[in-house]
Nucleic acid binder design. Sequence first.
DNA 1: CATATTGTCTATCGGATTTATAGTATATAG
DNA 2: CTATATACTATAAATCCGATAGACAATATG
Lengths: 135, 135
Amino acid sequence: MKLSVKSEYACLALIDLSELHEKGQLCTIGKIAENKGIPKKYLEQILLILKRSGYVKSQKGPDGGYRLAKDPGDINVAEIIRLMDGALAPVESVSTYFFEHTPIEKSPKLLDVFRQIRNYISDTLEHLTFRDLIE
Amino acid sequence: MKLSVKSEYACLALIDLSELHEKGQLCTIGKIAENKGIPKKYLEQILLILKRSGYVKSQKGPDGGYRLAKDPGDINVAEIIRLMDGALAPVESVSTYFFEHTPIEKSPKLLDVFRQIRNYISDTLEHLTFRDLIE
DNA sequence: CATATTGTCTATCGGATTTATAGTATATAG
DNA sequence: CTATATACTATAAATCCGATAGACAATATG
């Protein structure tokens, strides 16, 4: 896993929305972009992806904006990174959801170590929810 | 850390050379490439990098080839990946050797989790030597 | 010395990916 | 009706990665 800027932006945006969630307030793309220092038009695309996957809801028009579609405690960081970047594993040949063959399979011992690393990353990030990340 | 094919090739080549190390035998680029299924011309560049960093030695001419410059037990996987790919950390802002600012710093809590992941990866791979990977 | 073999070095290409921007369409509050 | 917001698609710009090409240098051997 090498985190892309896209994943970072997605997490930051979800943190922003998580903090507003209890009040049920909408927040515009522009506001989030400004808060977190994210290019607005790029954030637009990211929020669209999050919307299509059911993490956020939106409303058009004046006073429109975005809000979370779930409780922050029901969204974990692993699923967001997988959605944006693909595999958490450092090598696809030890990835559960994005398996692919790679040259490293020629060394079973090395492969085992990377599998162990993948499991650590998955366990850590799957148990980390956006509730844990709110201030 | 997302492992590149380059790192994978470097590790596989070093494993090959580690297995020959005790006998002090030289091995040609072509042989290694064939053994591990690596494009020869690409492997050439990788071995040059390893040579310049003191991991392997070479000899030109007929009967020439490569051999390890150190004991397999004195080379760990972390340093090879850092040489080929840069940071082991999933985000540069928690990298010890390749620190850079990234947007994720806006969430200290998230940053902490990634620091923890980085430490796990570093510890694991720094203690893994090529002696451990020999058959 | 001539030749074949092997590493050295630099340049570059093709393709993919990533980050970001542009522009048009659609919904809705007032 | 108009201003404001999201929806959507296309594509630009930059970078990186894996791979290839080809000229050069060293050396063992006959």
